[in-house]
Amino acid sequence: MYDLLSGLSVIEASSFVASPSAGLYCAQMGAEVIRVDQIGGGPDFRRWPVTGNNDSLYWENLNRAKKSVALDLARPEGRELLQALVRATGQVITNFPAKGFMAHDVLAQGRPDLVTVRVMGWADGSPALDYMVNNAVGYPMMTGAGPEPVNHVLPAWDLLSGAYAAFALLAAMRRRVETGAGSEVRVPLSDVAIGTVANLGGIAEVLYERENRPRLGNAVYGLFGRDFVTADGVRTMIVVVTPRQWANLVEALGLTQAIAAVEAERGVSFAKDDGLRFTHRDALFPLFDQAVGARKHADLAAALDAGGVVHSAYRTMLDAANDRTLVADNPIFGTAENPSGFSYPAAGAFATVPQLERQAPCPAPRNGQHSEEVLADRLSLPAGEIARFIDAGIVGVA
């Protein structure tokens, strides 16, 4: 947690991953993020993984450092309160539909400088999940050995869209400072996905080649990189990105003469050309399979570390959670009083600002925990009126 965005208040009306992660990143940098949900929790409130008491560890971590307001959004009064909070605050992150009571032109009535950032599925407004978008841009057909597609378990497009939405919010707010004008910024997962494919050269590649890239298993496209198994059965990934790393890897494995023989036979030099190492992987990989397979992992790791060669053994997520460097001794982690009651390392801001003191991660709120506080502060509602809303089931409290 840092105070870089202190003084900024954002309403977040959202669920699942992309939109809540945008609010999370703002909150971790010090913004007051007020998440508005249905009383009892939105559609992601019990999403797995959950504890034995059915508390969502997913929800608990995507909503750290936020405030929670619970409203009955199925009733006109609840929707009007959400609209009023948006107008009073001036900026909102949401993945609600572009039409309806959360439409930008509806929300901007009486608040023309409103900034709305809307995370969407498809650009036409129809719904989509990360996994559908990923299928549409072709990545599952590039991974694995084939011919079956291989889905990725990481919701990459959700996370990229969330980060882009947080950036878009600040960009639109800066424009408002310069011009006084509000705006709606739409961030479709599908556009983030296909735009990223294009930024990485993928669109240009397949149109130039007039065919799809062949599946490579665990080999890295365009570089020397792949998984190898050591003598004691440790599978480890080795990737070379610089001429120095290549030279040090070849020396560490005692392959100088064998590599020279391949170069002489094929009339090439691997010293400074990533592409040639990739093109001739059919000759190189067997040599490295044999050399790595003759070394124990500890000895190999020490030799590669000494040469500055990038490598990493494959591990489980439980292994990573118990890694002191990654978690226990990592300053991005801290402890918090979690609503679930389960104590574990909680992540704060991923970035580190050496000039500022890092604050401890904050807990997620309970559903409706800040309803009374926010309605009083933001809408100046008297206590009696708030109490009537609560008694009528329009406002929920923790």
Rank of each mutant, 00 (worst) to 15 (best):
I332E: 04
E77R: 12
A383K: 09
E184H: 01
V310L: 14
A13K: 03
S15A: 12
D282I: 11
R266V: 02
D289T: 06
G384L: 08
F278S: 11
I39N: 07
P363K: 13
T89Q: 10
V250T: 12
P112E: 04
F288E: 04
V106T: 05
L318A: 15
M132C: 08
S183Y: 00
A219C: 07
V153M: 06
P365M: 01
Q245E: 15
R277P: 12
L356P: 01
V137S: 08
A283W: 00
R111S: 13
R277F: 10
L170E: 07
F288A: 06
D191K: 01
P127T: 11
G334D: 02
N61Y: 09
A301V: 10
P147I: 13
D3S: 12
E263S: 09
L253V: 00
R111L: 06
M317L: 15
D282L: 08
V33L: 04
V86M: 00
H280R: 04
I11K: 07
L8M: 10
Q28H: 09
T279Q: 09
D377W: 06
S19L: 06
V310P: 07
G162A: 01
W246I: 01
A383H: 08
C362G: 09
A128F: 09
V36K: 03
K67S: 12
D124E: 09
L160C: 08
E211S: 13
